[in-house]
């Protein structure tokens, strides 16, 4: 029965029959990391009126001939248990870190490693945005990568990208990596 259902779902999936390649991206990270700001800056929207996300946001961005459906899910502690529900069929994970919030590096590292262990994210490429580089107290991306032990990831593609979601600096570089990576992977 379970198989039949899965079959039906895939049938419906195929029904959409869009010519565009669709990519499902999940955008996660601790609260106040800047996920929604990043999402809005990706969608070229105003980033000045953002409040803590209680639920989730979705934006579809066209890039490199692909349609990127980006799901930004709230990062508050009480919402994090819900992350799991959004990981199915994910093509790519973007993890956002507040580079200036050194006190929570450990916490964010734990959350990331839990995600990496999720069955639904097995082998899924990860892009880490070392956000808030516009702040003077921000740690450099290399330092964060070391703290997160990114070099130990062997089962997937990964990349860390310094950026500032507010100014937009570095965001496009990250997106380019995503597109190149997805294209490579899907081909």
């Amino acid at each position: 029965m379970g198989e039949a259902q899965k079959g039906l779902l895939s049938v419906i999936e195929k029904l959409k029959g869009s010519t565009e390649q669709e990519v499902r991206i999940v955008l996660l990270g601790l609260d106040n990391a800047g996920k929604t700001t990043l999402l809005k800056s990706l969608a070229s929207e105003d980033v000045n009126t953002i409040t803590p996300t209680q639920g989730f946001n979705i934006k579809s961005v066209a890039s490199h001939g692909m349609k990127l459906n980006v799901w930004d899910i709230g990062g508050q502690r009480k919402i994090r248990p819900f992350w799991k529900k959004y990981l199915e069929n994910t093509d790519l994970l973007i993890y956002v870190i507040d580079s200036a919030d050194k006190k929570r590096f450990e916490e964010t590292g734990l959350e990331l490693s839990e995600l990496i262990d999720e069955e639904n994210l097995k082998g899924v490429p990860v892009l880490i945005f070392a956000n808030k580089q516009d702040l003077a107290t921000a740690s450099p991306a290399s330092e964060i990568a070391e703290g997160l032990n990114l070099h130990t990831y062997r089962d997937r593609e990964w990349q860390i990208q310094a950026c500032s979601a507010v100014s937009g600096e570095g965001v496009q570089d990250g997106m380019n990596w995503i597109c190149n990576n997805i294209v490579n992977k899907k081909k």
Partner: peptide, 24 residues
């Protein structure tokens, strides 16, 4: 509202089940 509530996801899942059952 621009932002989605977490409950939407739950309802969507229920909807999927309903449609699958009906179509099956």
């Amino acid at each position: 509202e621009d932002e989605n509530k977490l409950s939407y996801t739950e309802i969507h899942a229920q909807y999927k089940k309903l449609v699958e059952k009906l179509l099956d």
